[in-house]
Design a binder for these strands. Structure first.
Lengths: 354, 354
DNA sequence: CTGTTAGCGCATTCAT
DNA sequence: ATGAATGCGCTAACAG
């Protein structure tokens, strides 16, 4: 049976209070006593029970805030699932989770949302951030006020946030590029659709995609890169219509497109477009993420493959890190924590072929 | 703040003991009282704290056993990592984990190992099982003796085990077949290497592989299927040598092999062979699993792709299910719990290309 | 500097 | 049939 704090106290000939002081570096322990306790811990191979600790920690009442742009419905839906999970888990630890989403990829709105969370006296904030000076300053100010910050999905690299939980976007682009090459059998003309170029992760995906294609597939040509200039504001459906219109034009302008690479979950939008118009030539559509909409399109063989991050795990880890830090004062975190990337193809989804 | 058993008791005007009796169906509660309690639970939206429950459950001392054939070193190494994780986690709940591996894929030895665990008075056993009559009987006997059983990696389908944690092997074969087709650009001659045909999951992988190849790639021909007749006993290194010899012969016999599909983690062995001999024609090697050895070979571009199950998660879930069942009497489990399959290619592993 | 004690939420035992 | 009391391992507040 695992040793408890009582066993350690007995072994060292002190009280549990003293052992607690040693374990948690609370000071006020004589050097000699501390040594005895440490020896006892070593001897009994003691580690503290996270269960019991959790029970106690209910007495504190910690608030943690979350903010992110709630556009790209299917994508963020997974994040909401993660929030529900982590909420339930941390509730047992006396933690309250406050969600304050924004309606756009707009930094002003983002700053306002963060402000609201601060007013509610959160001790930590998990946020989707931007590689932008204002965001860096925002985060650094929060940290000065003793509010811990972790980022997910999109980072603010040189800020004082604890850590970033997300994907290696260049690698994600690399994988997508390889898949494009394989499905095209190494040859064809393709276009890249890069929505939200404002996010540096989207630029990274494009960069990763291009380098693999250029390096490994000499007969594949990237004939155009389409970006959206205007930022979306609020209504996802309208935004999708704009995207569809632009892409439709691109396909018809460059005749003979063999493949389309979409840098984010709007892969779904482009897939719907292809399905509606049914161009005579089959177009290889490769994109990103793993949403209900995309899974449907993959099953129908309209989207060929996507590379996905596990955004649900990312938000969960972001919150857990904040809790660890706030409640337990954990110190060391890697600068970034990349989550494992997945590859989604039809055979992963369809009923098995016998 | 989340409601506790005390809040419920107060709301219903009874003691916590009575609430406890209602929650855990212990009987000896008047119908009228029970109703009051249930209403209070409803009103306060009460659910019990798993944390507190865990703390209490330390007072019981549950033993859980694990057995599996410890051959294919790299593969089982991941399982050992899973065991360490679950051990640490469940220790806090007062659970003792006892591991009793076998040295071969031999059913007699498997039965002996199970017997040893029974003698140590385990309340549950997680095992890699076989689709075999003797195993089915073995499991059913254990269940009669009130020892719970869950299977992982390989199942005993019609037995009385709680549930199976593993992969959908036909689907795994489907995915491998698709990858073979993509990497071969839809054409070539291939051989299948099926080690351990004794395991039905290996047969399923072959079946899944064949159906996709036949269905989707008319210019790919499966020219041979190599199986091992003899069972391994103990020494992995010797066993690997036998495999390598057989395959070397096959490659050289059928001249002009373009691809090899290996049904399990001996993909690593075959990869080492290809590296050593460096046949003039590049051979597309597709296989299974995600081990240190295989990742190395994928980085070197010798293995092109593998389909992997997460055997670490599988063992963890097998054990957790047993614990839930034994400690909390949870009743309902799906007959099988398929874990998500992963696809491993070079771009997932290498440093990112900029 | 050190020991004692109450209490986190729940399950169990002993009274009543 | 019900209530009260105890303890699981740990932390925090208080006493000395």
């Amino acid at each position: 049976m695992k040793a408890t704090i009582k066993d350690v106290a007995k072994e060292a000939g002190v009280s549990t209070g003293t052992v607690d002081r040693v374990i948690n570096n609370k000071g006020s322990v004589a050097a000699r006593t501390e040594k005895k306790v440490l020896e006892a811990i070593e001897k009994l191979n003691y580690t503290k029970s996270p269960i019991a600790k959790a029970l106690v920690s209910r007495r504190k009442h910690i608030k943690i805030g979350i903010t992110f742009p709630n556009l790209e419905y299917y994508f963020w839906n997974e994040v909401f699932k993660g929030i529900e999970e982590v909420k339930e888990k941390l509730e047992a630890f006396g933690v309250e989770i406050i969600v304050e989403p924004t309606k756009s990829y707009n930094i002003e709105e983002h700053i306002i949302a963060v402000d609201k969370l601060v007013k509610k006296e959160v001790k930590g904030i998990a946020m989707m951030s931007y590689d932008d000076k204002r965001c860096r300053k925002l985060i650094d100010k929060l940290v000065e006020k003793n509010i811990e910050v972790s980022t997910f999905i999109s980072d603010s690299p040189n800020s004082k946030r604890l850590t970033f939980n997300g994907e290696d976007s260049i690698k994600a682009g690399n994988i997508a590029g390889k898949l494009m090459g394989l499905y095209l059998k190494g040859k064809g003309n393709i276009i890249i659709v890069g929505i939200h170029k404002i996010l540096s992760c989207m630029q990274d995906r494009i960069q990763g995609f291009k380098s693999i294609v250029n390096e490994e597939f000499e007969n594949i040509k990237i004939v155009d890169i389409i970006e959206n200039k205007e930022l979306a504001n609020g209504k996802e459906e309208e935004y999708r219509k704009i995207i569809e219109k632009v892409i439709k034009k691109a396909i018809e302008d460059k005749n003979g497109i063999d493949g389309i690479y979409v840098t984010n979950s709007f892969t779904g939008s482009v897939g719907n477009l292809l399905e509606k118009h049914d161009y005579e030539k089959e177009i290889v559509l490769i994109g990103h993420e793993n949403t209900d909409e995309i899974r449907d399109l993959i099953r129908k063989n309209i989207v060929k493959a996507t590379v996905y991050q596990n955004q649900k795990e990312e938000i969960i880890r972001s919150i857990e890190i904040l809790y660890e830090r706030i409640a337990e004062g954990k110190k060391e975190y890697p600068n970034v924590q990349y989550i494992d990337l997945g590859i989604l193809i039809k055979e992963k989804l369809t009923g098995t072929y016998k």
